[in-house]
Computed example of a mutant assay.
Amino acid sequence: MKNSNTIIDKAILTIDIESKAIANLKKLINIDFEKAVNFIFNSKGRVIITGIGKSAIIANKIVATMNSTGTPAIFMHAADAIHGDLGNIQEDDIVICISKSGNTPEIKVLVPLIKNYGNKIIALTGNPNSFLATNADFLLNCEVEKEACPNNLAPTTSTTAQLVMGDALAICLLDLRDFTSKDFAKYHPGGALGKRLYLRVSDLISNHEMPLVTSNTNIKDVIIEISKKRLGATAVIDNQKISGMITDGDIRRMLEKNDNISKLQAKDIMSLSPKTLNVDAMAIDALNTLENFGITQILVLNDEKKYVGIIHLHDLIKEGIF
């Protein structure tokens, strides 16, 4: 059994080998890369990405990245392509073929068929002298010195390079399309990520009651209002304007300082300058405000600066945003 130092050293060596290969990709980005990006951007068709073995797995990931960033893409397995899946390719589609060697039997059969269809081919390969590279319209060179595998056999460094080159392609296309976080939200409506992009403060307060008291409300009634509305705080409103805010923390501090609270009113313990947020703000903005000021509640106002509710940190945790 190998000792822990050997394991750690091997892990660090693997990362070193792959990180050096990725850094070297910068030297391989050339005019062909630029032409490929512009061709995809100006195309009316989709991007069909194909490969076999580990390259097929990388192709699937690049397809997912492109689809989520505004470039329509479809995965087509190289082996299945020559057994019927070539029907996926439409007239204006562009085909990206991924292959480390660029000389696999499936690729050698597939490339001429695609060219007969009249579709452009982008080669993403680690062998710039391969059959794929020399027969493609654009070459994205992903050449690596060696695999991280000690036998230089298992695809490791090479597939990492393919993935990074695919990311570079997708991000350049994203930039050309002026793809914003709002566009991103359209494709990611589910999960915590989607909620960060589309959920608004108005969505979180829609089912809430609105705890409120006036400056002259006695402390007993303030405590009852906070407890009843279960948001850990209440707004203090006078003449339809915010005078302040009282939280559970304010109540605790008051009890620590005063033995007799019967004569105290809301104005005696309220915070005079509570943090506020517009009802149309993004929920993630509410989270950032709470974190920046180290608070757990924030008052919500409409466009007329009228009080419409309270956002609590628990609301954001419940939605998976925190």
Rank of each mutant, 00 (worst) to 15 (best):
V111N: 02
L113F: 04
T104E: 11
K108D: 01
V111G: 01
A133M: 04
N129S: 14
D137W: 05
L132N: 03
L113W: 04
G126I: 01
N119M: 10
N129L: 10
L140C: 15
P150W: 14
N119H: 12
N116M: 09
V111A: 01
T134H: 13
P112R: 02
F131N: 05
S130E: 08
L113K: 06
G126W: 09
V111R: 07
V109R: 14
V144W: 08
I122V: 08
Y117L: 15
K115Y: 10
V109T: 12
A136Q: 08
A136M: 11
A136V: 06
L110E: 01
E147N: 11
N116F: 14
A133N: 10
E106Y: 06
A133T: 12
L113V: 13
G126T: 00
N119I: 04
T104N: 12
C149V: 05
N135Q: 04
N103Q: 00
Y117R: 10
N129T: 05
I121D: 00
F131E: 02
K108P: 05
S130A: 01
F138N: 07
L140F: 15
N119E: 06
T134W: 05
P128H: 08
P128Y: 09
E145F: 14
K146W: 13
C149K: 08
K146L: 13
A136D: 02
A136F: 03
E147P: 12
C142L: 05
I121E: 00
V111S: 00
I107L: 11
C142W: 09
Y117A: 05
V144L: 10
Y117Q: 12
Y117P: 05
E143F: 02
N141G: 10
N141E: 15
T125C: 10
